[in-house]
Amino acid sequence: MSEPISALPGARHDGLARIEEAGLQGMITLRGDLATKPVKAAVAAATGGKTPGLRGVAAGKTGTALWMSPDELLLLCPYDEVAQRLEKVTAALGDAHALAVDVSDARAMFSVSGPAAREVLAKLCPVDLSPQAFAPGVVRRSRMAQVPAAIWMPDAQGFRVICFRSVARYAFDLLGAAAQPGSAVGVY
């Protein structure tokens, strides 16, 4: 009964795009000097991959690193491995000045997929979501209507959206409204 639950377990909406709450996702906020060895080692420890460059997404063997700001990454890994990864991250950081903290429960994550996914998000985010401007490999922090959000494309089929946990219902309802039948824009 006390197993952790995500913000909106099982929430799903099928409209122009499929909106799904993505379930439990391990997330570690890592702040530090991204150019230094300890930080790169910490990223490798958490994701088995490289440290992403400016606005980049770096998928590793065991996780993904998202560039959040010049001194901040969001490291994604399986939810139940967060504690163990965080230990490895902390060990890799050693004495370096850095901050690594588990934020898995602070956020909600959605997947937005289907041919109209770009348009659904383009109704809510002031971001150029055309295929020539937005493709897998980049992450964008912006706002989704009235709340902060980060979006990226794990693959060509769809998007991941991260927002704060407390507004998960708002975000889900927003995405659902943007995907309402008959509202295809037909641009992308």
Binding site: L54, R55, S69, P126, R140, R141
Partner: peptide
């Protein structure tokens, strides 16, 4: 100048 985004005013 940090993330290179041409941000519109509502992001700022």
């Amino acid at each position: 100048p940090y993330c290179g985004v041409d941000a519109e005013e509502t992001e700022l």
